[in-house]
Design a protein around this nucleic acid. Sequence first.
RNA 1: GGCCCCAUCGUCUAGCGGUUAGGACACGGCCCUUUCAAGGCUGGAACCGGGGUUCGAGUCCCCGUGGGGUCACCA
Length: 519
Amino acid sequence: MTVRTRFAPSPTGYLHIGGVRTALFNWIFARKHGGQFILRIDDTDAERNVDEALAPILSGLRWLGIDWDEGPGVGGPHGPYFQSQRAAGHGAAVERLLASGHAYRDFARPDELDEERKAAQAAGKPYLYSRRFAAFDDAAAARFATEGRTSVVRLKMPREGTLVIHDAVRGRVEFAWEREQDHVIQRADGSCLYHLASVVDDHDFAISHVIRAEEHLSNTPRQAFIAMSLGYPLPAYAHLPLVAEPGSRTKLSKRKLSQYLKNHDFKQVMEHGQRIAERIGLAADADTFNPVIVDFYREVGYLPWAIDNYMALLGWSLDDKTEFFSRDDLVRHFTLERINSSPASFDPKKLWAVQDHYMARLTTDEKLGLMLPFLVRARLVAEPPPEEAVATVRRVIEASGERLKVAGDILGYADFFLVDEPPMDDAAVKQRLAKPGVRPLLERAIAVLGGVDVFHPAEIEAACKGIADAAGLKIGDLIHPIRVAVTGKSVGPGLYDCLAILGREKSLARLARALPLCG
RNA sequence: GGCCCCAUCGUCUAGCGGUUAGGACACGGCCCUUUCAAGGCUGGAACCGGGGUUCGAGUCCCCGUGGGGUCACCA
């Protein structure tokens, strides 16, 4: 049997991090078995602008390297891949269910249903529709219609017996049919609802494995009923554990950002992103600038594979020690059996650590390629980037080493090399420059550094040590003021590297300019 | 509330009857000291509870408890 999996997002305007995990597992599983991964757009409820709401989802998936064999943009033999365009098939399925007695037209009004529900509740009994407005033949339908009633189509769910599902991650799961409701599958206007459409489309697409989040486990009986009633073989099911909130077991939600920000780690990651966003002119308060949404990571400069790798570890593991996987290894080692069944809370700090790991392994040129665009967007480098600026940035990247965790971090480490007069950080000035004795020290530095033969880190270091020794000071007493004078701030790459990259002329000019700020 | 799922360090997890309960992130301490979400070393930290089964239970069974999901003419 050919393995065919699918990810079926609805066009919501953003790609949720939990959705990424679902898409990823479907993708990996299809790749592992040489099958196909299909992208279907569940837009049956769509009155909104689908194109606009879909774009971030498609581009997010592409960015993450989750490519689809059939779906929007690539087509395929089972198209169309937009659920809204498959209405004819859904309608035909409803007719078949009606004809076979697995569904019925129901003429009840919402208030009548409410009444039944409340009565059941008051009696402390599980609600089950009485079917008293169900029309099981044309005569009944005609009678209800003359009363001015309109009808929807409901599933005629079994009221005895048990459904047994063999879930790939949960094992055997049982449901009593009598607890299942007669769900509506078609509205009065003929449009069909999600469960019906989904089952029909999955069958039409020959989906072999339905891999989705656990929130759908309870939906499985009604979907299985639809499939069985239509004579479809059931797909294999695998219900993934929920991606939960940081430090909790509750489903992660885009709307609870302000609550998550109370979590220290979450807040740190968010604020770090905001600093970058502000510098590249991105609306950091935008709805989608949110660590629950993939755009956040892309905009801040995370590596897509770091996200994939981290997400793969959320609910799945290979063994007790392997944490980093190449794409091929992940596909090779992945099995549904090793998916965990308990909810996994999303830990932005751990993602950060995975990101750190991969970023540290990039070559300078790779980092350059990722980081230059950030500098361009922040208007620190012209477009196209002049050769000189590129050379400077390359040296900054090398000097910064593992301090650069995400591509956007380059902004804070390269800015003072790329502008003529970097802004001076007040706190840093106060702490390092505006102190007695600093001015003569800097004057001495100007004199000595002006005479250094070659303006390279090693020579600069020797010169600085000479100054400190002569003055009977610790090297730090000299270096901190110089750093602030030259870069405007108190953090950055190693100072000797900074001076060398900046060059003698600019270094001395900046030292001179800082003199009036000294104590 | 009904139904369903889940339960090992704060978090992600390993464990598939006999382990000093392992790893990673986070956290603490120490070192380095030229800053840092830089680096090095190091430490603390877990089997939800109660019954069984068994020579032996984190591991199997049952019952509690706790957490979560779902119960739409949303997807």
